[in-house]
């Protein structure tokens, strides 16, 4: 039985679907552009838009304004966009492929797996920090396969997937805590990593994860129609000629790669992978061909917006973006649980 809520704002607005979808995408692009401009402008020192344009035009490396924009604000803005889009799309993939509206990178174990290997590299191989995206990917992938394996052995119900995700996450989380406790001098900042945030991100650290994320997003968008077929159920999808097992593993791998790459530079950001896919479905419905691009855009806007809030709410002090996200994500998750109280979320 379907576990997805049955509403769509499109029905409420009773609009022509093509022009409605176009409007949503255009609005999100405009919002993203505005958020990018604000993100580059605000921080410990506010830089007006005109000054930004002039500094970027001159490219004067001795100018403090240019240095702030070029080496602090732009990498931070890009990091928020990349992390937001990748974690959101990863959540959408996991929710579709596992047919579970509660699935998200952090609930299904991907975050903890990616986080553990990232911390391990930071603690024991600080000279190889550039390998963290790869380590985060492998960690995320191993965790999600472990969760999937346990869930299958215990009946593969939606409930068993969530429960095995909680168990695996808890176990791996304990291992991460052990490493961070025993090696407090680890190259990765403990609190920033656990809560998640974008301060101190450099272009060098972004390059490899950015490549992974962009390639994965292109592949996922290319395969989004096949993801629609997969949501019909294994037998129907197989009967339609889809290589179900192969595709499911490919999507799980892509989900792990997307979230693992984001975690490698942004830390364990909570809930973005859960909130954004649901909000995107509310906006454009359930067709993955449209949902995935909207998820990527909305995830970018949401994460960048949270990061801007994190910078200005208690200025001049800054709080990690993960805290803002969890403040928003927690109540949303409870709302989902309450909405599913008639057994819709569990089988």
């Amino acid at each position: 039985m379907s576990i997805w809520p049955k509403f769509s704002i499109r029905r409420i607005l009773n609009s022509n679907s093509r022009s409605y979808n176009g409007t949503v995408i255009a609005l999100l692009l405009i919002l993203l552009l505005i958020a990018v401009m604000i993100s580059i402008s605000v921080g410990s020192s506010t830089i007006p838009l005109q000054q930004i344009i002039s500094a970027m035009g001159k490219k004067d490396l001795t100018s403090k304004t240019y240095q702030i924009i070029r080496f602090v604000r732009i990498p931070r803005t890009l990091a928020a966009i990349l992390a937001g889009s990748s974690l959101s799309v990863s959540g959408a993939i996991l929710q579709s492929v596992l047919n579970n509206s509660l699935a998200s990178p952090n609930i299904i174990g991907v975050n903890s797996g990616a986080g553990f290997l990232t911390v391990l590299i930071g603690a024991f191989f600080p000279a190889s920090l550039f390998l963290t995206p790869l380590a985060a990917f492998i960690g995320g992938l191993l965790a999600v396969f472990l969760v999937f394996f346990i869930a299958q052995k215990s009946g593969a119900s939606r409930m068993s997937i969530v429960l095995s995700g909680v168990a695996v996450s808890s176990f791996i989380g304990a291992m991460t805590d052990t490493v961070l406790t025993l090696k407090p001098e680890t190259a990765i900042d403990r609190s920033i990593f656990l809560i998640g945030g974008f301060s101190g991100v450099t272009m060098d650290r972004l390059a490899l994860p950015a490549a992974f994320i962009i390639i994965s997003l292109i592949v996922v968008i290319g395969l989004s129609y096949d993801m629609n077929i997969l949501t019909l159920g294994d037998e129907t999808a197989k009967s339609l000629g889809l290589g179900v097992a192969r595709l499911r593993y490919l999507f799980l791998g892509l989900g792990a790669l997307l979230s693992g790459s984001a975690i490698s530079f942004a830390g364990l950001l909570g809930f973005v992978g859960l909130i954004v896919p649901h909000a995107s479905r509310f906006l454009v419905g359930y067709d993955n061909s449209l949902l995935i691009p909207v998820c990527a855009l909305l995830g970018s806007v949401f994460t960048l917006g949270c990061d801007i809030l994190a910078r200005i709410l208690f200025a001049p002090f800054e709080i990690p973006v993960g805290i803002i996200m969890s403040f928003l994500g927690g109540p949303f998750f409870i709302h989902l649980l309450l909405k599913g109280k008639k057994g819709k979320l569990y089988d």
Partner: peptide
Amino acid sequence: LAKELSFLPQLRNIPNI
């Protein structure tokens, strides 16, 4: 094969489409 034979299972996911 999917062009030669189709199968309609008894239990199916009901998609929101």
